[in-house]
Simulated assay, not measured.
Amino acid sequence: MTWTNSPMTTRSRPTVDPVVDWPMIDTVLLDMDGTLLDKYFDDYFWEHYVPQVFAEKHGMDHEQSRNTLLQRYRAVESTLQWTDLDFWSEQLDLDIPALKRSIDHLVAVHPYVIDFLDFLKQHEKTTCLVTAAHDKTLQIKLAKTELGPRFDRIVCAGEIGLPKENPSFWQRLQETLGFHRSQTLLADDTASVLQAARQHGIEHLVFVAKPSSRSPVRHSADFLSITTFNELMR
């Protein structure tokens, strides 16, 4: 679940055709939740399932519980705490990893993601998963999707020590991975993350305009936008 003030539109088609000059790209950095995986799992988990369990635990009305938790989520948005399952387990006195595993049947890969990862391998691109997810969340989702072996590297924001919305994250990531900014493509469903990467100088930025199967397409006014990855396989 992400709140953003970045300008969006609800056009059915992006302003710019999503064509990538693949010979110019050596490294592809891919976000996980909302980009490769359907964000419905996360939205449902944090906005509905956790409030339901929290309400039952404390004898609260569900809507009251939801409003209380949304306020607490917003207080740490765009920080490492937001995705830290241990933090939320302590804060809410709930076993958050266990709750995630209890509904992991909702974890789903977006259409054309496997095809796109195969495309990148065929074209010998270094492919890295760069996620804000906590390592316990990562383990749950990789176990369900079996995407792990398709990446050359997997990096969590906690390993870098900064949220992806911080431009310094991308400097540290570059030092870790050794990519060239002019030859790197980043795809993410969060505009503020792409803005931070742009500040660092990463040139090829792609906004995923339909992070959840239950949400409408919302193209970015600032970045090349796609709804599914088959649009980039040209």
Rank of each mutant, 00 (worst) to 15 (best):
L129M: 12
L85S: 04
W82V: 06
Y49T: 09
P163Y: 11
L30T: 01
D61G: 08
M1I: 00
R172L: 13
D115L: 05
A157T: 11
Q64I: 13
A98H: 11
D152P: 06
G201T: 09
P7Y: 06
Y40S: 07
S225C: 08
Y44C: 05
R181V: 15
A55E: 06
K100Y: 02
Q174M: 13
F151M: 07
R72N: 04
D152R: 10
T227V: 15
M32K: 04
L120H: 12
D86W: 02
L117A: 03
S182F: 07
L120K: 11
W3Y: 11
D33W: 01
L92C: 12
V130W: 06
V76W: 03
G148C: 02
D188T: 03
R181E: 14
E56H: 13
R74I: 06
I160C: 05
N67I: 08
L92Q: 12
Q81K: 14
L120Y: 09
D61R: 09
S65D: 08
G178Y: 08
D42H: 05
Y44A: 07
R13L: 13
L99F: 02
N5S: 11
M24Q: 13
Q199C: 07
F41L: 13
V50N: 13
Q71N: 12
Y112D: 14
E175Y: 02
A143M: 04
N67Y: 03
Q71I: 06
F41E: 10
M60Q: 12
L142A: 01
G34M: 01
S168A: 15
D222W: 05
T145D: 09
M32Y: 07
V109K: 10
L173P: 06
R13G: 00
Q171P: 00
T145Q: 09
V50W: 14
K144A: 14
V155K: 08
L129F: 01
Q122H: 07
P167F: 10
T126P: 00
P51H: 12
I202N: 02
R214W: 01
L99A: 08
A55Q: 05
S12N: 11
H48Y: 15
T190Q: 14
H204C: 10
M24K: 15
A187N: 00
K57Q: 15
E124L: 10
E159K: 14
W82I: 06
D43C: 05
K100F: 01
D86P: 00
H105N: 13
N5C: 00
E159L: 10
R66P: 01
T79F: 07
Y49N: 05
A143F: 00
R181A: 15
S182T: 15
L36T: 03
K100Q: 15
G148W: 04
T9S: 13
D21V: 03
T176S: 12
L85H: 02
P97D: 01
I160T: 10
S213M: 12
I226C: 00
R11S: 11
V76F: 03
G161C: 06
S65L: 10
A143W: 02
Y49L: 14
F45C: 04
S213R: 15
H123M: 05
R234K: 14
H180G: 00
R153I: 00
W22F: 05
E56Q: 15
L185W: 05
F119I: 06
P51K: 13
P149L: 10
